[in-house]
Amino acid sequence: MFRGLVAGQYVPRRSFVHGLDPRTKILASLALITVIFLVGDFPGYGVLAALVIASIAASWLPILAVLRGLRPILFLVVLTFLLQVFLGGHDDGTVLWGGGPFVVTREGVREGAFVAVRLLILVTSTSLLTLTTSPMDLTEGLERLLRPFRRVGVPAHELAMMMTIALRFVPTLIDETEKIMKAQMARGAELQSGNLFQRARAMIPILVPLFVSAFRRADELALAMEARCYRGGEGRTRMRQLRFGAGDLFAAFTVTAVGALAVWWGRVS
């Protein structure tokens, strides 16, 4: 029931984008998110869309996997579009269609399309990060990026370790949930019927065992880590060292240049 490919799940490939240093990709994503919110007009998004499409091409991802990642937010995109069109409050614009309390204006449609495109580019560019970076690389990149902030008390290693463990246990917990649901259904539990309150109550026989098993797993994991002398990040060496390469330089330059171009071109005139 929960099986199958998850949106934004890592797709292993040997491409230019996959081979980039995770730090480059994280920073580039952050930069792109900022740029997306700085851009104020369509031409800027044209530039960004070109960059995103070029990146997808450079990462050799099946276009279907990327589109599938967009499916969950499609509803949100349509909803924001409609809200903008009907409730955007452009009373003084050019009226395209008027009926009762709802007035559709040219400005409203434009605004709606703008927000929808913004959302699509935002999600595509960020999911590109998780699509091309393995969870291991991702957490390691984060740890390295956060390391300078340790002086001000940011527990970089601990945060990264928590993230790694959390990611590692997602499939395990999904399996576990499925098993517990089946076991309770075998005991006559009704999970798909009744009103909201009844359904919430029906979750108790699933959530309690799930939490119990999660705590048990956490205990076992902690024990196993301690048995192998884990004592935090101090003095730990890495099997794979992160290294900036020429590709990273190129990627950083491209993203900066294209981002600047998008902001300049997309400024509100």
């Binding site: 098993k179 076991a183 075998a186 009704e190 699933i206 119990v212």
Partner: peptide, 24 residues
């Protein structure tokens, strides 16, 4: 009865847990 069925116990008391099936 599933493998490791003890992992499905959830009630506060043994009696209430066993009662889950019959109640359903």
């Amino acid at each position: 009865l599933f493998q490791y069925p003890e992992h499905q116990l959830f009630e506060e008391t043994v009696a209430r847990d066993v009662a889950f099936g019959p109640r359903n």
